Computed example of a mutant assay.
Amino acid sequence: MSAEQEHITPLATAAVDHPTSDEKDPSITTPTPPSSRRRRRRRCLICCGSCTALVVVIAIVLVIITVTVYKVKEPVMTMNSVSIKNLNLSLGSSLNINMTVVADVSVKNPNAAFFRFGESTTALYYRAREVGVAYGPPGTAGARKTFRINVTIDVMADRLLSDPSVIGDLAAGKLDVTTSTKVGGRAKIFLIIKRHVDVMMNCSMTMAVSNQSILAQSCNQRVWL
């Protein structure tokens, strides 16, 4: 072997970097352990179940309150007074009569929710013949409050005098008449639940012709919920 060959030093092998056990290759995704997925699924189920249970409880509470505290009760209609105004009889070539009937009606709302009433209708009958009708304005009766209705009925003389019995009743000094008052309303509970109510009151009364007073009166009411 020559001297030149003895002094040749072999090239060092290029060092190759290999990741140590403490370093992770970013291209490799570590799979999520099954136990972690089960925990997340369990938490989702618990959250959904809690929300559903809360909604059910709220719905049950609302139903209980609606059928107990806010149960719709029948309004009570009362005829406070009826009076005759401007009664005028004239005997000329024929009998003429002018008469106005004033009715004071109240509707009591016994409910914990307010009632909104529409226009009321009050009709006056003589021997089953309608001789006058009047309309009252709409209004609102608050919770456990009373709504007043005042109506003035102008009697239609031609209809009244068309009945032959009226002359004998006037001569006897009294008239038997009937009033019928009807009003419809709607109750709102929690501003969502609506309940329609119709109230009708019929009153039979005997009117004195001489002093324009009410001699006898009897009333009854009907309610449609």
Rank of each mutant, 00 (worst) to 15 (best):
T140W: 02
L87R: 04
A113N: 02
S36C: 02
S218I: 01
K85I: 12
G49W: 02
A134C: 05
S165R: 15
T68L: 10
V63D: 05
V76F: 02
E119H: 07
P10K: 02
I64L: 14
H7W: 10
V67W: 02
A171E: 05
C219A: 03
V151M: 06
Q212E: 04
I8W: 03
A128D: 15
R37Q: 13
Y125I: 08
V151S: 08
T146A: 07
S213W: 00
T30H: 03
A112C: 00
L160M: 12
P19F: 14
C219L: 01
S90R: 07
T121E: 15
L175M: 10
R186L: 08
S204R: 09
T29S: 08
M156T: 14
V183H: 01
P164K: 09
C203Y: 09
V155R: 03
T52V: 09
S50N: 03
K188N: 11
S81A: 14
S35K: 06
P138G: 08
C48V: 11
E23F: 12
D198W: 06
W224C: 10
G136A: 06
A141L: 01
V133Y: 01
M205T: 08
M77Y: 00
R195Y: 13
A208S: 15
N111K: 00
G118V: 02
R222L: 12
G92T: 10
R38Q: 14
L95M: 13
R186V: 15
S210K: 10
P164T: 07
V151L: 06
V133P: 05
S81F: 12
L161G: 07
N111D: 11
A15R: 13
V177C: 10
L62E: 09
V69L: 13
H196F: 01
A112N: 06
H7P: 00
V63W: 08
T78C: 03
Q217P: 00
L95S: 07
L91V: 15
P75A: 01
R42M: 13
P164E: 05
Q221H: 00
N96P: 00
D169F: 02
Q217L: 04
L170N: 04
Y135F: 14
V55M: 09
I193D: 04
S204I: 05
A12C: 04
C44N: 07
S162T: 13
P26Q: 09
F147L: 11
T52Q: 00
T68F: 06
D163I: 13
N202G: 02
L54V: 04
F114C: 01
G92W: 10
R43V: 11
F115H: 01
N86V: 09
P26R: 09
L170Y: 06
G49F: 03
I149P: 02
D22E: 13
S83H: 13
R195M: 02
S120R: 11
R116Q: 10
K188M: 10
W224K: 15
T146G: 07
Q212K: 03
V183M: 06
R43T: 11
D104K: 12
N86R: 12
I64A: 09
P164C: 05
I64D: 04
I64C: 13
F114Q: 06
D198C: 05
M77K: 03
Y135L: 14
K188Y: 03
K194Y: 11
G185V: 07
P138H: 06
G136D: 03
R39Q: 13
A141F: 01
V72T: 13
A128E: 14
V209C: 02
M200C: 01
K145N: 06
C48W: 12
Q221R: 03
I58H: 07
S27L: 07
M1S: 15
T206Q: 12
T179D: 00
P138C: 07
